[in-house]
Computed example of a mutant assay.
Amino acid sequence: MYEAHQITFRTLGRAILHGVSLQVMPGAFTAIVGPNGAGKSTLLKVLANEQRPSEGAVSINGQDISSYTPRELAQVRAVLPQATTVQFAFTVEQVVALGRHGRRSSPAEDRAVCEAVMTLTGTLAFRERQYQTLSGGEKQRVQLARVLAQVWDETVYPRYILLDEPTSSLDIAQQQYIFNLARAVCARNIGVMAIVHDLNQAVQYADTLYFLRDGLVTAHGPAGQVFTQRNIEETFRCRVNLYRDPVTGHPYIIPASDPANRFVAVGK
């Protein structure tokens, strides 16, 4: 399990996170949702060990994250930030192979892993193309393949992937492709945590939802249970109408028309 224990983060005398606790289970998809400025990306950076919390601790599989060496940490968790820049004329295969850096595996094993994750992400067909020539959606799938290559090896311990808005700027088909991939890799005893802006996609794909506002967890639990009109309205401070798909039973929301842009905490 990947855990945040009462995380508080302060910078320039201002608290961004206030006693946030969170659990990412192996083999499950956890989504974090919340308005802009809620502290979502800061929380991800603390979880990834890119920022040290002012208070609290992060643990992975029962071990404090600070006790991992960089190599050990790279083998147990991988991070996909909002944007990744590649300055050199790398091919797709070379970018994916960066995920194998630091692994104690043979070149043959590395090639096999890279081929497996490129096949899964639909990038194998253009493995020899230069990364810079790809579309935005293709680049995102290559970056996801790189992250998967980092933690793909089957181990006795769970591994984890942290995704920061993995579908930003992608069209709806590419968004669905990325989320379906994230769900699929959970079957390899990998826990996936993603910051998600689209609430309807979050409840469709996630096992667990965390609502975050002003650095505080306002609600969390099984996605279908905590995806309520009250939780959404109180977290995002806007009116919504909540419905259920008659075929799948999945809840979904549509913003309510409110010309005065008022907020009232109503609903169930």
Rank of each mutant, 00 (worst) to 15 (best):
Q176G: 12
A256L: 09
N189Q: 14
T218R: 12
Q174H: 15
N231A: 08
I253R: 04
G215Q: 04
L181T: 07
I172Q: 15
L181P: 07
A223S: 15
N231H: 13
T218K: 09
D171Q: 07
V203A: 10
A182W: 02
D198P: 00
R230A: 14
Q174N: 15
I178W: 05
L199I: 07
Y177V: 10
Q204H: 14
N261K: 12
H250N: 14
A265D: 15
P246F: 12
V196G: 00
R183N: 11
N189R: 10
G224I: 02
A219E: 08
R230S: 11
V264G: 02
R213C: 13
P255H: 06
I172M: 15
H250A: 09
A260F: 06
I178V: 15
F236P: 01
V264M: 11
N241K: 08
D245K: 12
A265Q: 11
A182V: 09
N241I: 11
V192Q: 02
N189S: 03
D198Q: 08
A206L: 06
F179S: 00
I190H: 04
A194M: 08
Q176P: 00
N231W: 03
T218Y: 09
Q225R: 14
N189V: 00
Q176K: 11
D207I: 05
V226A: 09
I253K: 03
N200M: 10
G267W: 11
I254P: 00
G221F: 13
Q225H: 13
R237I: 12
N261Q: 13
V240G: 06
Q229R: 15
I172T: 12
A202E: 00
A194Q: 05
A173L: 12
R213K: 14
A223V: 07
A223C: 09
T218G: 07
Q174P: 07
F263P: 01
F179R: 00
P259Q: 08
D207C: 05
V226Y: 10
V226Q: 08
D214Y: 13
L199R: 07
D207E: 12
A265Y: 09
D245M: 13
Y243W: 10
R213G: 04
V226P: 02
T235K: 02
H197P: 07
D245F: 12
G267D: 04
Y243G: 02
N231K: 06
H250F: 10
R213H: 12
G215H: 05
P259M: 06
A202I: 02
I254S: 01
C238E: 02
M193G: 02
T248M: 05
T208N: 05
Q204D: 04
I232T: 06
N200A: 07
A184R: 14
H250I: 14
H220G: 01
N189G: 01
D171Y: 05
G224R: 15
A182L: 13
V240I: 12
Q204A: 15
V185R: 01
D198L: 02
A219R: 03
A187L: 06
V266I: 15
F211S: 05
T228Y: 10
V264C: 10
P255N: 08
E234V: 11
C186I: 09
G224K: 15
V240N: 01
N231D: 03
F263A: 08
Q175H: 09
F263W: 13
